[in-house]
Design a protein around this nucleic acid. Structure first.
Length: 478
RNA sequence: GCCCCCAUCGUCUAGGGGUUAGGACACGAGCUUUUCAAGCUUGUAACACGAGUUCGAAUCUCGUUGGGGGUACCA
């Protein structure tokens, strides 16, 4: 392969980055980086009715969060710009004229009302709705007359009759369509904007895109694109159509059934390493049994040929597990930064948060859980878990804890060994198992029945706080 | 409706003519343990169906069924 690989991620700016979009971008990125190619961002904003303010910035921000950066984009520029389609209107105009000239396209003056009626009738007759070519047969003077009275028009591409259009998809192999089923699609709208089909073909050619890697929802429009390439006499890029990401009910992944925006997962405390790793494995795997991959490892091992054909359900539980794996791999220092950022409370020192991280690292699934799961590190318990209370808090507990408080108060050095000794001597004193002390003390200190090693927990909370919490619990618990 | 794509445990998947059909998540059991995790051991669980090709089919072919996508002056 001597040619320089150029791929693009071409989202439309509809508000946020969808996790499916993240995967498409990722696969493009991995493929480019692996082959020393160029990765391009192109914004497909030819539908003015769907434009959302700030969407482009948002998109780039989410991608940047994931360490997916572009070699060419509206932001960084490049030699093939502009990278926003609404700024390329003059270019599309030129190519539409060329098609018109070559009679590969024609003007259509039909109203939307007429098209609606036509489609409904075709549906009734159970044939696939297709433009009926009314305007193809317009005479030159009729066209002029309509133009003169400034009737709005669109431009449609011509589709040859009875032709088989074949292509080879890297993931799906040979695919073929019969031209008779293909609609003479609009390529230039009456507002002067191109439709996707024209714009993506023109841009992919002009930007010298070598591989088009995108979602499977585009597969059925490929024949139109192929025809356009042929009309222009351009080389057709290689194509790879990715399997879709699915909801639990196997429909296309959508907002309704959970979070789909990358920013939702960021907000929930997922690590970029985990989201990337997870999303990469939805439809691809290295062929052996390794599962935890960094971005660099993915770049090394990814291959389009190994991409699975069937759609994949976005399984949150596995993402959770994967997130935990990546959390456990991270250094405490790095995790402290994340936790500090969301805790946003300067009364807790770096060292203190570091202790929380050290104790909770193996017990949380997300960054947010460092705070929600172990909020007792940051505030004294307001509620006491009923189950644990029933199970562990007996009529004798008050005495035990009173005894322990006294032990603690006499401690000069409030560290692990001394704490352990205090608790053990308490249980010895009352001739009971250590667990009979540990569990109620945990409940009194944290309000819950689970968590890290109690001795370490006590050490981290500190003498003053521990004694105050124990005393407070004695007031509340019977 | 029509066109296209797809089909291995509940989920993500490996396996592409001869395998005890492998792994991971989830779930169950056990070990460890002050709880929860983590870790280790282990269990339950799948080739959608029907024909054909073949000595032999999860694997190749066809059909059926099921699912998904497309069918716009949306991308």
């Amino acid at each position: 392969m001597s040619e320089k690989i150029r791929v693009r991620f071409a989202p439309s700016p509809t508000g946020y980055l969808h996790v499916g979009g993240l995967r498409t971008a990722l696969y493009n990125f991995l493929f480019a980086k692996q082959n020393g190619g160029t990765f391009i961002l192109r914004i497909e904003d030819t539908d003015r009715t769907r434009y959302v303010e700030g969407a482009i910035e948002n998109l780039i921000k989410s991608l940047k969060w994931a360490n997916i950066e572009f070699d060419e984009s509206p932001n960084v520029g490049g030699n093939y710009g502009p990278y926003i389609q609404s700024e390329r209107l003059h270019i599309y105009k030129k190519y539409v004229d060329e098609l018109l000239e070559k009679k590969f396209a024609y003007k259509c003056f039909c109203s939307e009302e007429r098209l609606d009626v036509m489609r409904k009738e075709m549906e009734k007759l159970k044939i696939s709705p297709k433009y009926d070519r009314k305007c193809l047969h317009l005479l030159e003077e009729e066209i002029q007359k309509k133009l003169n009275s400034s009737l709005p028009y669109v431009v449609r591409m011509k589709i040859p009759e009875n032709t088989t259009i074949k292509f080879n998809d890297i993931i799906r192999g040979d695919v073929e369509f019969l031209s008779d089923r293909i609609d003479e699609q609009i390529i230039l709208k009456s507002d002067g904007y191109p439709t996707y089909h024209l714009a993506n073909v023109v841009d992919d050619h002009l930007m010298e895109i070598t591989h088009v890697i995108r979602g499977e929802e585009w597969l059925s429009s490929v024949p139109k694109h192929i025809l356009l390439y042929q009309y222009f006499g351009w080389e057709i890029p290689k194509m790879a159509h990715l399997p879709l990401l699915l909801n639990f009910d196997r429909s296309k992944l959508s907002k309704r059934q959970g979070d789909v925006a990358v920013e939702d997962y960021i907000a929930k405390g997922f690590l970029k390493e985990a989201l990337i790793n997870f999303v990469a494995f939805l439809g691809w795997n290295p062929g052996d049994e390794r599962e935890i991959f960094s971005l660099d490892e993915l770049i090394k091992e990814f291959s389009l040929e190994k991409v699975h054909k069937a759609g994949a359900i976005f399984n949150l539980e596995k993402l959770m597990w994967m997130n935990k794996q990546h959390i456990m791999k991270k250094s405490d220092e790095e995790l402290v930064k994340f936790v500090s950022a969301i805790l946003n409370n300067e009364s807790f020192s770096f060292d203190y948060i570091n202790n929380v991280v050290r104790l909770m690292k193996e017990r949380v699934n997300t960054i947010n859980e460092f705070i929600t799961f172990s909020n007792y590190f940051f505030e004294s318990p307001k509620f006491f878990d009923e189950k644990s209370k029933e199970k562990n808090w007996t009529s004798q507990t008050q005495n035990h804890i009173l005894f322990l408080i006294n032990k603690f108060e006499n401690l000069n050095n409030f560290s692990y060994d001394e704490i352990e000794t205090s608790i053990k001597s308490t249980s010895n004193n009352f001739q009971i198992s250590t667990g009979k002390i540990i569990h109620p003390v945990r409940l009194a200190l944290t309000g819950v029945g689970m968590g890290p090693s109690l001795y370490e927990l006590i050490e981290v909370l500190g003498k003053t706080e521990v004694i105050s919490r124990l005393k407070n619990a004695l007031k509340i618990l019977p």
